[in-house]
Write a protein that binds this DNA or RNA. Sequence first.
DNA 1: TCTGGGGTCCTAGGACCC
DNA 2: TCTGGGGTCCTAGGACCC
Length: 390
Amino acid sequence: MWTEPILHVDMDAFFVEVERLRRPDLVGVPVAVGGLGPRAVVAAASYEARVFGVHSAIPMTRARRLCPDLIVVPADHHEYRRMSEQVFEIFRSYTPLVEGLSLDEAFLDVSGLRRHHPGPEAVAADLRARIATELKLPASVGIAATKFVAKLASQAAKPDGVVHVHLDDQLEFIHALPLRALWGVGEATMAALETLGVETVGDIAVLPVSALERRVGAAHGRHLADLADGRDPRRVEPDTEAKSVSVEETYDTDLVGKAAVQTELLAHAETLASRLRRSGLAGRTVTVKIRYADFTTVTRSETHSTPTDVGRDLHRAAVRLVDRVDLAAPVRLVGLSASSLEPADTPRQLEVEEGDGWNRVAEAVEAVRLRFGDESVEPARLLGRRGRQR
DNA sequence: TCTGGGGTCCTAGGACCC
DNA sequence: TCTGGGGTCCTAGGACCC
C-alpha cells in the first residue's frame, strides 16, 4: 500500500477554472486564457475548447480559427498566484514535503502519513475533496513509487480523477506510453531518435544505452534509459530558492533602432529590480536577450563580483550588453534577467562607478556622520584602529 | 499556423589557477 | 622551448516544462 508514496497533483485547466469562479458564464463553453495582442498564444484552454484542437502554446489567432465560438479571457496572473497559494496551503497541510513545479502542480511525498491514512489513495481522495469543497476547483492526482511515474499517472487521471500505478504494474504502464509523453522528451529529442524507429517508452527500454547517449547526449541518454526501466531516484525536494528572475516582452510590432531597445531595457530594469527586492534577492549576473523578427535569439551576459537589485545598475549593465549585438535588424522581443542570485541582505562590497561616483559616496558618508557621529562610517582599513588606540 | 512569459537544466569552449 | 591534468568559473546557445 505504502510502496507508492508519491503524489503528483495537477490542477485541471487551472487558469480557466479560476476565471470560472468569478464568471459563471464561462462554465460549459470553450474558453481560452491568454493574451489579446496579435502575437498572443494560448496559456490555458478549457476541455470544451480542447475538443476543437485548442491547447496551450498555440497562437491565439489559430485557436480562434479552430474554434470560432471560443471565448478569450485575458490572463490575470495575480489572481492565479493568489489561488495557487491557497492550493499549496492545502498541500502543505498534509506534508511539508511539497515540491511545486508551477502554480498549478506539485509533488507530495506522503509516506509520513502512514499512521493517519490507510494508504496514499485515501490521502488523494481526501485532498481532492478538500480542494473541491474549499476552493471549488478540480484537480487530478497520480500515485506512484517515483516522481516521473506519478506525473504520468496524473496525466492519465485527467480530468478530475485519480490513477494509482502499483509498483507491480509500473513497467507495463510506462512501456505502453508514447515516448513523447516522458517528461524531458520534446521535439528535438524525438527528431534525434527518429532514425531508431522508436515510438513508445517500451521501444527505448530494449535499446542499448550507448545508442541513446550517442544521439541525445550522455546525461540525457542515460536518464531516458533509466526512466524506461522505471528507475527514478529523485526525491521530492521541498521548494528551493529561485535561480533566476527575468522580465521579457514580445512587442505587437517589431522595435527598430537602438534607442527603442534601450528604452524597453530601462522599463525592464525597473520591473526586474522591484521583483528582486520583493523577493529579497540580488543578482550577480545580468543577461540581455534579443529576439529578431526571424525568431533567431541571442543573449549577452556579464557577471559582477557583487550582486545588485538596483534598477539603475541593471539598466547600465543592460545597455553595455546590448551594445554588443546587432540592433539594425527589427527586434520582436527584449528580455532582461538576473541570476547568480544571493540574499539581498548579505554584506556586500560597494562598487563605485567612475565619474562622480566617489563624490556621491562622500556626500552620503557626510550625511550619515551628521546623524550618527563621525565614527559611524569609515574606510574598512581603519576599522578597529581607533579601538586599539583607546 | 508563425510561434508568450516565466523558469530549469545541460553542453561546450575558453580563461585561469595550481 | 614545449607542455599535463584537474578544477572552477564564465559565456552562449539550446532543449524542455507549464
